[in-house]
Design a protein around this nucleic acid. Structure first.
Lengths: 133, 133
DNA sequence: CGCGAACTACGAAGACTTTCGTTGACACTA
DNA sequence: TAGTGTCAACGAAAGTCTTCGTAGTTCGCG
């Protein structure tokens, strides 16, 4: 009955979901245990908390799980690039009214970026304009 | 008793609060009515909803209000620059692991920026490096 | 078999957000 | 003065998010 199912606009992940997604993006498909261990490093969090979150994310459709093994293996549905673009785009609109330069300005003002980092950004701008033509 | 009061780390505004703050930043000190009218343009929202939000924000400390007139006048406590920097900085850390170039990359990939906009970003990069020295 | 370890499923509490209806105070005016 | 319009204050409902305890299942092993 897929034709009766609403194609949701892929809501942006919540704060906790994002933490989990970052682990999945970095590690690739992982079990609850693996995600839990990865996140426990930074702050204490219960095993079942991660489990529950992953279950909810499965229902929401932001991750899929492979139940072949007893320890289910979870995987992000959307590639990191897509979700990051979505998040950056939202901030661009909601905070900076669509002005990319304003976003860059404020992003830089908050921390000290290295000369290399700045050079990297310049390279990307060149690349971006090259593609526009 | 200010010395007994905790100096909260100024939590980042919620989605609705941000919408209101943007109005206050743009218009300057405003009454509930004015904020309401400004926001009604984009989407329907009740007057008391805005009032309640502003009251909550007053308690949280993100806005102050002048009760001199019957229609209280609200004003953002933090300048736009500061809050924007905070929001951009958070996204930088939480999504892009602190990589400014990645943030720029994804911000640009989501929308089409004009040549002028790109030039503006380049100018800002120059400015940023100039100040580093 | 019976036990403990490893896992999933489920429910529910608590905190926050968002939204709005209702009430009451005030002030202006017919 | 009674009626009308403008406001603030409050309470409460509904929806999310986050967290975790508890219960039940399965597997390997002594």
């Amino acid at each position: 009955m897929s034709h009766t199912m609403k194609r949701e606009p892929v809501k942006t992940p919540t704060s906790s979901e994002l933490e989990i997604l970052r682990v999945l993006w970095e590690r690739g498909p992982s079990t609850v245990k693996e995600v839990h261990e990865a996140l426990s490093g930074s702050k204490p969090v219960g095993y079942t908390t991660i489990l529950k979150l992953l279950q909810i994310m499965t229902v929401k459709g932001s991750v899929t799980r492979n139940e072949h093994d007893r320890a289910h293996v979870y995987e992000a549905c959307q590639p990191a690039e897509r979700t990051k673009r979505q998040l950056a785009g939202e901030m661009l609109d909601r905070v900076f009214g669509g002005s990319a330069s304003e976003l860059v300005l404020h992003a830089l003002s908050g921390q000290k970026s290295s000369h290399e980092e700045i050079e990297e950004i310049r390279r990307m701008l060149d690349e971006y304009e090259r593609k526009l033509k």
